[in-house]
Amino acid sequence: MKFGILVNEGPYTHAASDTAYQFVKAALAKGHEIYRVFFYHDGVNNGTRLTVPPQDDRNVVKRWSELAALHKLDLVVCIAAAQRRGLMDAAEAKRNGKDADNIAPGFRISGLGQLIEAGIQADRLVVFGG
């Protein structure tokens, strides 16, 4: 089956991102396809490379980056939600006159159309958090 994933909450405060990650990992292990993971609302904060969680805890952001690299996952951060919350890639930082970017490896910034498209293309769109 082809899954689309929507993550609506940021790391650590809510378990939504953890649950989504475990779901994606389990689905891939069973041979399913992940069409896209879309990060919305505070979920965009899963895409900042500047988090430094305690060493004895899981690293939510790094875990997504590593899974994306391993399985060529498409991790998309909503641009409108990201702009509100200060999540930038280099191009966005330049466009908005900001002095830094913070997007983690494996994530890309794009529009809400990518979420709708995931709903259209996937057999199931699974929503985590919110």
Binding site: N8, Y40, H41, A80, A81, R84, G111, L112, G113, L115, I116, E117, G119, I120, G130
Partner: peptide, 19 residues
């Protein structure tokens, strides 16, 4: 919370997709 506003933003963008 921002959920209602950002939900409406999805609806408005999604309307362009003829679903």
């Amino acid at each position: 919370t921002i959920y209602a506003l950002e939900s409406l933003e999805v609806v408005l963008i999604g309307a362009a997709f003829d679903q």
